[in-house]
Design a protein around this nucleic acid. Sequence first.
DNA 1: GCTATTGTTCGGCTATACAGAACAATGTTC
DNA 2: GAACATTGTTCTGTATAGCCGAACAATAGC
Lengths: 280, 280
Amino acid sequence: MKQAVDKAEGKPAAAEDRYPLRSVGRALDVLQALGANSGKGMGVGEIAEAIGVSRSTAFTLLQTMVARGFVSDVRIGGARLYRLGLALVHLGDLAVAEMGITQVATPILQQLTDATQLTSRLAVLDDGYAVAIGRVDAPGPFRMTASLGRRELPHCSSVGKSLLCRLPEPQILAILARLGMPKRTEHTLTSPETLLADLREVARRGYSFDNEEDNLGVVCVGSAVFDRSGAAVAAISVTSMRLERSDTDLHHLGAVVRAFADRISHLLGGPAHSALPPLA
Amino acid sequence: MKQAVDKAEGKPAAAEDRYPLRSVGRALDVLQALGANSGKGMGVGEIAEAIGVSRSTAFTLLQTMVARGFVSDVRIGGARLYRLGLALVHLGDLAVAEMGITQVATPILQQLTDATQLTSRLAVLDDGYAVAIGRVDAPGPFRMTASLGRRELPHCSSVGKSLLCRLPEPQILAILARLGMPKRTEHTLTSPETLLADLREVARRGYSFDNEEDNLGVVCVGSAVFDRSGAAVAAISVTSMRLERSDTDLHHLGAVVRAFADRISHLLGGPAHSALPPLA
DNA sequence: GCTATTGTTCGGCTATACAGAACAATGTTC
DNA sequence: GAACATTGTTCTGTATAGCCGAACAATAGC
């Protein structure tokens, strides 16, 4: 799992991942560990091992967060299972609401899902990553695991491409250099050049594809949303299992998604794709 | 704001609100302060004052949480505005997903909203409070502020009543004694006796009302959801501005909500209201 | 230009958060 | 049913990490 690293190693002061406040960092580690084992719940010892502290330390951390509702615990016999608390639900909801886009976009997403029978998502750029802040699940038994708030690499995601495509090239390259372009599948674009070429296409036609570039068998079609200033503040997409549609149909779907994105832009006072200036 | 309290006071060990880990508690304070000022964003000094620490301490706390995405910051000129980070969105989403009820209930909520044109919500009991974990907003311009994850007092909420009504009386009284029954409006039931009488009615007919008991002009109609064990694991409700319907219509609406609640119970393998034993 | 207000860094004192071991409570095994 | 194993919880000493205050930097206002 996680060896104890060299504990008493003088003080090379390295430890770049050592955050100013150790206990706070560990508390956040606990939350993320609980998130990673979501659904299962974890015991004190398990958590202690996961984040590399003693049981007693983990216990104190948990006690603090349970008292505040950030972690909830269930006693089951002698054991005690910890899971993420509902206080996080409230804060997460507020964090989403702070980005006002969600308010106006959600009804449109619903219509997009109604029209296409596909799961649709709304995402924004956060520190270079694409992060979904809204979602409408497709009807029917097929439930795509479209989790909210997870940072996704932009180079292999439809919303990521739409969010990036109108940024200045140097900025795009800086993001790609910082986050890397790992090969997620055989279709992933892994060189900045090929991605830039793709992004130029995306900017030109106003919609983007993720052609099994992140997960095999999963295809997405996305388009950007603009605010008053003309900046791409968000992007929407629909996700589908491997489409057996023709390329023509895929482009038709792209035009549909773009039309819905334009409606959101319109509500935000932003321009439609057709009103955008050509690329600099 | 917050005097230093008597620091060296022997050890009456009071300070019930002093959590084991001070810095972690303060970190959570920061998050909640940011949540309270949601939408506006806060500066370092403002946060420091809100939670009663020095600016430098607040700064360190924020830096730690920014590094992990729990807080996001926007530089605007020389100033720096902090707001809730998107990492919270992910964890909040996971916390909701952990309660599997959401998965099956959301489509039904959607149908309930479609059928009634009212905002519908799904709530569970958390430490005695009613906490909404799901919501479908009504169409149209009227947007009820139905925030997720906030702890709501059960005695003046429709979902709260439905969640409580089948608990043993001593347990209900214990919850009420612990949380109190503050008078939110002139219609709030403020004595355990009147509430218990109301809860017996709720249990008998299978749906509950909040008749402007929490907010004047706001009416809710709720019903409980049961799992395999027959326990009320959740409740749903619809919310409306002051209905001008007759009592008969209100009861009709109650029957509708109860029918949808029963459909969720059915999906969970639980009994419908009609299959429940009468109150002990 | 100077002042007022913000964010950020630094250093030292102290309280605090840590690990480890002891204790308790449960469940498991033979 | 008793010994064991495994879990959660309490306790205590000590090193250190976290806190404050003050100094510094950078804006914004006048």
